[in-house]
Simulated scan of single mutants.
Amino acid sequence: MTTQPAPMVLFVCVHNAGRSQMAAGLLAHHAAGKVEVRSAGSEPADQLNPAVVEAMREVGIDITTERPKLLTTDAVKAADVVITMGCGDTCPIFPGKRYEDWQLDDPAGLGLEAVRTIRDQIESRVRDLITELTA
């Protein structure tokens, strides 16, 4: 009996400092190795959004070692599912890939309370995604 490799999910937003980092952290945490997770940005920031780091810490997920990464065509090609979060036309599209666009507020410049709301919206979607990918 051969086992299928874990599906790979790539989360993409412009700066890879907020939404995509929260999504990657939540998916990695909840999927517990059943899904491979990556994130990237079309114009990566210098560092993660501090309010995002704090909001994730509150739910027991440490993303302090993560760094914003540049989106590459190789990363998109390697992914089974590409989830964009407001990167507009800058995200490369390849035929045959599963794409989703999650419309979520950008946490840049927002306070912790607003970032918590975005985190919770992402967590709900991530849980649904895990159910779909591991069914």
Score class of each variant (00 low, 15 high):
70 L>V: 01
60 G>R: 14
45 A>N: 10
27 L>C: 04
8 M>A: 14
106 D>F: 06
59 V>Q: 08
120 D>R: 06
99 Y>K: 13
44 P>Y: 14
91 C>E: 07
98 R>T: 14
93 I>Y: 15
110 L>G: 07
119 R>H: 02
11 F>T: 11
6 A>Q: 13
53 V>E: 13
30 H>T: 01
115 V>C: 02
44 P>G: 12
76 V>I: 12
126 V>G: 05
63 I>H: 04
64 T>D: 07
98 R>G: 04
7 P>S: 09
19 R>I: 02
79 A>N: 05
85 M>T: 02
65 T>H: 05
85 M>K: 11
30 H>V: 01
123 E>M: 08
61 I>D: 12
82 V>E: 09
73 T>Q: 14
127 R>V: 06
115 V>N: 03
70 L>S: 11
59 V>A: 06
134 T>A: 07
113 E>N: 11
65 T>V: 03
54 E>I: 04
28 A>S: 15
6 A>W: 06
77 K>T: 01
132 E>K: 12
104 L>N: 03
83 I>E: 07
103 Q>F: 08
55 A>R: 05
106 D>Q: 05
81 V>C: 08
78 A>D: 13
110 L>W: 05
111 G>D: 15
37 V>R: 10
39 S>W: 12
78 A>L: 11
97 K>C: 12
16 N>Y: 09
16 N>P: 05
91 C>A: 15
105 D>M: 02
6 A>I: 03
114 A>P: 01
34 K>R: 15
60 G>W: 12
46 D>H: 13
44 P>C: 13
55 A>E: 06
75 A>W: 05
135 A>L: 01
28 A>K: 14
30 H>F: 14
78 A>P: 01
41 G>V: 09
67 R>S: 11
112 L>P: 01
76 V>D: 10
23 A>M: 06
60 G>N: 09
82 V>M: 09
103 Q>A: 13
15 H>E: 12
90 T>A: 14
119 R>Y: 05
101 D>W: 01
54 E>A: 13
87 C>Y: 06
21 Q>C: 12
14 V>S: 09
34 K>V: 01
93 I>K: 15
65 T>F: 02
52 V>E: 04
95 P>N: 15
89 D>K: 03
89 D>G: 09
81 V>I: 13
128 D>Y: 00
78 A>K: 11
78 A>V: 00
10 L>R: 04
101 D>V: 00
2 T>A: 15
47 Q>H: 13
